[in-house]
Amino acid sequence: MEYLHAEYQRTEDLAAAIRLLQADGVSRRALELYSRRPVEAVTQLLPRRSRMSLGAVLSAIAVGTGATVLMYWIQLDYPLVTGGMPIVSGWATAVVTFEATMAGAVFGTLLMLLKESGLVLSRRRAPVPDLPDEGAVLQVECETGAPSIRALLKNTGASRIEVVDSAA
């Protein structure tokens, strides 16, 4: 296995390269684009599956429910009457339930971001190319010495192609 790093300056070239590579049978997982700014055109070509919204919602429900159950348990366990209010009441604790739910959503989003972006918890072994000032670097994971892919990258207008061994 080796990694090809191809630098592109123009969005169309990059898009064309990704399209052709995928038509050639290169899987999405083998492609990775590195840049200093997000390249929006590529987002549609290389959509990454995400469960972030689901994670946020589940975490929100879990934390919100947890906080509410805890509050009810505490209030029943040590009942004190204030202002003639009922010992447990949804009204009295609604705000705390809401805030806990929202804190859960924030927490869930953060965890899912770390998981999906590979920040902190990264397990990806692929080498990281140096980012050019302008443009972007397309990384292709392929069989060692794949001439067709190299040609394809060159033909679509890659300004620089580098080969990086997976061992490196």
Binding site: P38, V39, V42, T43, S50, M52, S53, Q139
Partner: peptide
């Protein structure tokens, strides 16, 4: 700066 990270960041 990989596109996975950019996409995850924008989604987040």
């Amino acid at each position: 700066g990989s596109d996975r990270q950019w996409q995850a960041l924008e989604r987040a």
